[in-house]
Amino acid sequence: MSRPGAFVVVGAGPGLGASAAARFARAGYPVGLISRNAETLRQLSADLGSTGATTDFETADVTDELALSTALELLRARLGPIEAVLFSPRPSLGWIKPVVDTTPSDLENALALSVQAAASVVRAVVPDMRQRRSGSLLFTNGGAAVEPHRDRAVSGVAYAAESAYVRMLHDTVAADGVYAAQLTVVGPIGPGAKHAPEAVAEALWRMHTTREQALLVLR
């Protein structure tokens, strides 16, 4: 039996990214990790490797299109075709401001992270997925996508834009055998929080394997 294609986490961190990587690794997927923090990536990769998983990582600022596309290409060269991508970069806490205090540069930075970086990933991996007629593009964001709040304006704007982008992407690539979907998590994710990272990772796994929904909201 052939090995599954790779699972790549864009914006990998010790919370949801690590749990999703572990879930796909248990199913036999080689795992690639991308973020700006090399030390975090080394630790995550070591933790996965200790379970017997095949894993590798590349550092990149996900808002740098060339750096991100290069990282994805290097991981594809070492791990094999990319079968699934999780796009889950963490926004800056400094962007959390009331709507009237939100600056144009706040919005520019948030859209660069949530939408432009998402488009960079898609441009890098979708051509091969379409050629193989196989692959999943999974995107996560927070409750502001469905319940925008005046005191967290940047998240409401950026997440709504990301959700619209993913919906259009889903409608475009489905006919080519590629699955694109958004998972919106309302409430905090973490140990002892409303949503356990492992439970959210399991939801992502179900989305990838069933390919039934363009949007899943966890409340």
Rank of each mutant, 00 (worst) to 15 (best):
G80C: 11
G80H: 10
G80P: 06
G80V: 07
G80L: 07
P81Q: 13
E83P: 07
E83G: 14
E83I: 00
E83W: 04
E83F: 04
E83L: 03
A84R: 02
A84H: 02
A84T: 13
A84F: 01
A84P: 02
A84C: 12
A84K: 00
V85L: 14
L86W: 10
L86V: 06
L86K: 00
L86F: 06
F87G: 01
F87Y: 08
S88Y: 04
S88L: 02
S88P: 07
S88A: 15
S88W: 00
P89Q: 08
P89H: 00
R90L: 09
R90V: 09
R90Y: 10
R90C: 05
R90F: 05
P91D: 01
P91F: 13
P91V: 08
P91W: 05
P91G: 04
S92T: 07
S92D: 13
S92F: 00
L93P: 12
W95Q: 04
W95F: 10
I96F: 10
I96P: 01
I96K: 02
I96S: 02
I96D: 02
I96Q: 07
I96L: 08
K97N: 11
P98N: 11
V99T: 11
V99Y: 08
V99A: 08
V100Y: 14
V100I: 12
V100T: 13
V100S: 15
V100K: 08
D101N: 15
D101H: 11
D101Y: 10
D101Q: 15
D101G: 09
D101V: 02
D101K: 14
T102H: 05
T102V: 03
T102W: 05
T102C: 10
T103C: 06
T103Q: 15
T103L: 12
T103W: 14
P104M: 06
P104K: 07
P104C: 10
P104L: 11
P104A: 14
P104V: 09
P104E: 07
P104N: 09
P104I: 06
S105T: 11
S105W: 02
S105K: 09
D106C: 07
D106E: 08
D106F: 07
L107I: 15
L107S: 03
N109I: 00
N109H: 09
N109M: 06
N109W: 00
A110S: 15
A110R: 08
L111N: 07
L111S: 09
L111I: 15
A112E: 12
A112G: 13
A112W: 03
A112I: 04
A112D: 15
